Deep mutational scan, measured.
Amino acid sequence: VNVKKLKVSELKEELKKRRLSDKGLKAELMERLQAALDDEE
């Protein structure tokens, strides 16, 4: 998943799939999702 190419709605969906908070600004969502993806690898 390329975090930078996702829309806010898509970021929120990806975060929900991982049971993460989907609250906050786009930058925060991107950071949170990227951290989750880094952990998965």
Rank of each mutant, 00 (worst) to 15 (best):
V1W: 05
V1S: 15
V1T: 08
N2G: 08
N2V: 10
N2Q: 10
N2I: 06
V3Q: 03
V3P: 11
V3F: 07
K4S: 13
K4G: 14
K4D: 12
K4R: 12
K4P: 11
K4C: 14
K5Q: 11
K5D: 09
K5A: 13
L6A: 06
L6G: 01
L6E: 02
L6V: 04
K7P: 09
K7E: 15
K7H: 12
K7Q: 03
V8D: 12
V8E: 15
V8T: 11
V8N: 01
V8P: 11
V8L: 10
S9P: 07
E10S: 05
E10D: 10
E10K: 02
L11W: 00
L11R: 00
L11C: 00
L11D: 04
L11T: 00
L11G: 01
K12G: 10
K12V: 06
K12P: 01
K12L: 10
E13L: 09
E13G: 08
E13I: 14
E14R: 01
E14Q: 09
E14A: 07
E14P: 01
L15Q: 03
L15F: 00
L15M: 01
L15K: 00
L15E: 03
L15R: 00
K16M: 12
K16F: 05
K16L: 11
K16W: 04
K16G: 10
K16E: 10
K17Q: 12
K17V: 10
R18A: 03
R18M: 03
R19M: 14
R19N: 15
R19S: 13
L20V: 04
L20E: 06
L20K: 08
S21F: 01
S21A: 06
S21C: 07
S21D: 08
S21W: 02
D22S: 12
D22F: 09
D22V: 14
K23P: 03
K23G: 11
K23E: 15
K23T: 15
G24S: 01
L25P: 15
L25S: 15
L25Q: 15
L25I: 10
K26R: 14
K26Q: 15
K26Y: 10
K26W: 07
K26A: 13
A27H: 13
A27S: 12
A27F: 02
A27T: 13
E28N: 09
E28Y: 00
E28I: 03
E28W: 00
E28R: 03
L29N: 04
L29C: 05
L29S: 10
L29K: 08
M30V: 05
M30T: 05
M30P: 04
E31M: 15
E31W: 09
E31H: 14
E31K: 15
R32M: 02
L33I: 01
L33V: 06
L33S: 07
Q34S: 11
Q34V: 05
Q34P: 06
A35K: 09
A35Q: 14
A36W: 04
A36T: 08
A36P: 03
A36D: 06
A36V: 06
A36K: 06
L37S: 04
L37D: 01
L37N: 04
L37C: 10
D38R: 11
D38A: 15
D39E: 14
D39T: 13
D39W: 06
E40H: 06
E40M: 03
